[in-house]
Amino acid sequence: MTDAQLLGRVLRSATGVFTFGCTQNEENIPQFGQPVRAAGADGDVYGLVYEIIIQDDPFVRQIVAASDSLTPERIEDMRQRRQVPVEVSALAVAYRRGELVRQGVPPRPPAALRRVFACNRGEVDEVLGRGGFQFMRIALNHAQCPAEDLLVASLGWVAQCRPPGQEQPYLVEAGRELTRLLAHDPLRLDAILRGLADLTAEAQAASRGW
C-alpha cells in the first residue's frame, strides 16, 4: 500500500455508502474489505470496499467472443481507455472534521467526482485501529453489504496496519466486541469468528516468521 494512491472518483453517494469509478487497470482496482478515503471539501469520509463490479457492454462482449482478436493493445484499450469503469462501492464508516476523527455515518456524503484514495497504513491505524469498533456495528446494521465477510476482510486490513506485535491482540479484542454485538445472533457470530480465527492463525504464523 503506497501513500495517497488515487483509486478513482465518486460516481454517486448517500450518507451510508459511496460508489466510485476507477479504470480497469488491475493494479488500480481496490480489494474487498480495503479501507478507502473519499476527499471532501469539509473533511474526508472513510469507507470499506464491499462491492466491486466490473462492467461490460456489447462491444466488450464482441471482442471477447472473437478470442483471436484479443491483441494486447485491444485488451489495454478496453481496460484503460474505454469509458466502462469498474464500479466500487464502499460502506461509509468514519469521517474526519479538522483534527477530529470519528467512527460513524458521516454528516454529509462525498460529492460526485471527489477523488477516492487507498488509505495508507497510518490512516487505517488511526481511523479504524485506534478509533474503536464502532465501524463493526455500522457494517452489521447495513442491509446491503455482506457484513460477515466484509468484517473479516476489513479486520484483516486493520490488523496488518497495527504496530508490530499488536495484530493478534487487536483481532482478539475485535472478537470480544463482536461477541457482545452479536450476542443475539450466534450463527452470524460463528461465521465471523471462524474467519477471524483463520486471520489470527495467519498473524501468529507471520509473527513467527513462517
Partner: peptide, 14 residues
C-alpha cells in the same frame, strides 16, 4: 481520435 500501435502491448492513445 485513437492511435493504436500494433505489437507494443501499450494501451492506445485516445
Amino acid at each position: 481520435s485513437i492511435i493504436l500501435r500494433q505489437g507494443t502491448g501499450e494501451a492506445p492513445q485516445t
